[in-house]
Nucleic acid binder design. Structure first.
Lengths: 194, 194
DNA sequence: CTAGTTTTGGAATATTCGTTCCATAATTGG
DNA sequence: CCAATTATGGAACGAATATTCCAAAACTAG
């Protein structure tokens, strides 16, 4: 190796991720990525080959966020309460925040999965992390007698995860003042686990 | 009026809608719209002003589809069975079909609602149509004693609609052979209404 | 039939797109 | 300290972008 990279790869990927997250794949230009990272075009392409490569790396990096959610689920306390925290946190972030950027994996599922199988796989991986985390939490709830065991944990987990994805869609169009209606959806979803 | 339009507005808007539906707003070029409609650039811009104008008209036209779903819900028979038909039809179309284009309103909610308030409103309108249809169906189910009345129909309708939106997201990444897992989600959702 | 108006469709515009290239700078192993 | 090697960042590329323009065609009202 003759010369080391000047930039911090983690920082650069975070900036890239942030940009794709905010404006999507098609909505993000190479120029926008140059601006966001502060790197020259040449450096960016030497390191990541193409816009698609950049996107895939960013999506990989996003799995951290899914893992963060799982960690949150593992915190001590009632499993049902942990699930509620997760869902309310999502509504709060997607709906109250002025960002409205939602979830990068969800956005990518909608924008890209149909056309790019590679992206579809990365999204599936991302989804799987949270689904497994939810299943684990539900199993704990079943053991504690807090959640019914008339269906297995995996089935219930997918049911909850499905509701989470629904919330990510609805939060995009629900005015902040109507947040309460989404909380009602959370109530119904969690009640269905009892 | 000196000269009438040569093209059928409905046909043109259908072609435009189809294109935006398949490739999204940012992913669709003016050229693609020219190709899809067969019109000249000038005619297209004279009639619809801009790509955004075209998109909004297409999204308006899409409300027909929502209305079609409501009509389907109103067909005779058990309200729960009608809801199941709706949801299974969606899974079938989004997942089994090689299209994978999903729902234009859902796609637009994800891609555009955060940045374009006008689009957000059109999406909300679109959503409202189906939500009201579901609420009406649930009310029928409650009257027939088939659906619990421990929550009002509007709340339950949003819960069901939320699940539908979740399915639209999941169907994008679920391989056709795993369709059964989505049917299980439908089962859980409908069971929660009893 | 004609004058007036609108549509038509393709040429033309300036801008932006993703990507490649390259001279320069920086670093390291020998 | 001297090659050899790699990173840097901005210039340059052709293709594609959204939009505008306009001469010719087509229709209608009188």
């Amino acid at each position: 190796m003759a010369r080391p990279r000047e930039f911090d790869e983690a920082c650069v990927l975070d900036a890239v991720m942030e940009t794709f997250w905010r404006t999507g794949f098609e909505g993000t230009s190479a120029q926008a990525l140059v601006d966001a990272t502060g790197l020259g075009r040449g450096s960016l392409y030497a390191a990541y080959a193409s816009k698609t490569g950049l996107f895939e790396q960013a999506l990989r990096r996003y799995q951290r966020r899914a893992q963060d959610h799982v960690d949150q689920l593992r915190q001590p306390g009632s499993p049902l309460a942990r699930l509620r925290d997760l869902m309310e946190g999502i509504v709060e972030a997607d709906c109250a925040g002025s960002d409205r950027r939602g979830c990068l994996a969800t956005n990518s599922a909608i924008e890209m999965s149909g056309r790019d199988p590679h992206v579809a796989e990365l999204v599936r991986d991302n989804f799987s992390i949270l689904i497994r985390g939810i299943a684990e939490t539900i199993r704990r709830g079943q053991d504690a007698g807090e959640i019914r065991d008339t269906a297995d944990a995996e089935t219930l987990a997918l049911f909850v995860f499905n509701a989470v994805q629904g919330l990510r869609v609805l939060a995009k169009t629900t005015p902040a003042q109507d947040r309460a209606t989404l909380i009602a959806v959370i109530d119904q979803t969690l009640a269905a686990l009892r």
